[in-house]
Amino acid sequence: MRLHYGVWDGVVYDNRGTADYKEPEGLDLKNLLQFNNGNPVMTFISHRGFLVFHPHANLLFAMNKYYSRVKDNSCGKCTPCRSGSIIISQALEK
């Protein structure tokens, strides 16, 4: 698995068209292959950022799915989850 681009912990990684390959330190990208054996990971999104592994990955689709789940699983105690996840999810739907 090769990281194409992304932002992780506020650091931008862009390996498209460069020989100077970089990936987030302390993040074992090989572990991502264990999520769904046989189904390649195209994107990975978390509260720490996003990573894109396939040049044809649809980041908007992935973000929409991510925030839809955040919205559905929010406990509602904090404003960013309670309100923000709904606002972001609706914006990505459009």
Results as ranks from 00 to 15, higher is better:
21 Y>V: 06
37 N>K: 10
62 A>R: 07
50 F>V: 13
49 G>C: 10
54 H>E: 15
55 P>D: 13
6 G>W: 00
43 T>H: 08
73 N>A: 12
9 D>E: 13
3 L>P: 03
31 N>V: 01
33 L>R: 07
51 L>N: 09
31 N>D: 14
44 F>H: 15
26 G>L: 02
49 G>V: 03
45 I>T: 07
51 L>P: 01
21 Y>N: 00
17 G>S: 02
9 D>F: 08
91 A>F: 04
28 D>H: 02
5 Y>P: 00
12 V>E: 12
48 R>Q: 08
24 P>C: 05
30 K>V: 00
59 L>A: 07
75 C>R: 10
42 M>K: 14
74 S>Q: 08
37 N>D: 09
78 C>I: 09
24 P>A: 08
18 T>M: 09
77 K>M: 14
31 N>W: 01
23 E>Q: 15
10 G>R: 03
19 A>T: 07
42 M>Y: 15
20 D>M: 02
39 N>C: 05
9 D>Y: 05
37 N>Y: 11
19 A>S: 13
17 G>A: 03
1 M>A: 13
23 E>I: 03
60 L>P: 02
67 Y>E: 10
39 N>R: 08
23 E>N: 06
12 V>D: 09
74 S>M: 07
68 S>W: 04
3 L>N: 06
6 G>F: 01
22 K>P: 00
17 G>L: 02
86 I>K: 13
23 E>R: 09
27 L>S: 05
20 D>G: 01
46 S>D: 10
67 Y>R: 02
76 G>W: 04
66 Y>L: 09
3 L>M: 05
88 I>T: 14
18 T>A: 08
18 T>H: 07
66 Y>C: 14
36 N>E: 12
54 H>C: 09
13 Y>F: 15
82 R>S: 10
90 Q>A: 13
59 L>D: 06
50 F>W: 10
87 I>M: 14
30 K>F: 02
87 I>V: 13
14 D>A: 08
22 K>A: 13
56 H>V: 06
64 N>Q: 14
87 I>K: 13
6 G>M: 02
7 V>R: 13
58 N>A: 05
67 Y>G: 04
30 K>T: 07
10 G>A: 07
8 W>Q: 00
63 M>F: 13
77 K>Q: 15
86 I>F: 09
5 Y>I: 01
77 K>H: 10
88 I>W: 05
62 A>M: 05
15 N>P: 00
70 V>Y: 07
47 H>V: 05
19 A>E: 11
40 P>Q: 07
80 P>G: 06
45 I>Y: 06
17 G>M: 03
42 M>Q: 13
82 R>L: 14
91 A>S: 12
44 F>M: 03
72 D>F: 03
16 R>L: 12
39 N>L: 10
56 H>F: 10
22 K>C: 05
53 F>L: 10
32 L>P: 00
82 R>N: 12
35 F>P: 00
32 L>T: 02
70 V>I: 15
85 S>F: 04
6 G>R: 00
89 S>W: 01
56 H>M: 12
15 N>A: 09
89 S>K: 02
64 N>E: 15
48 R>S: 11
58 N>R: 05
17 G>N: 03
71 K>L: 03
65 K>F: 03
33 L>D: 15
84 G>R: 04
28 D>L: 04
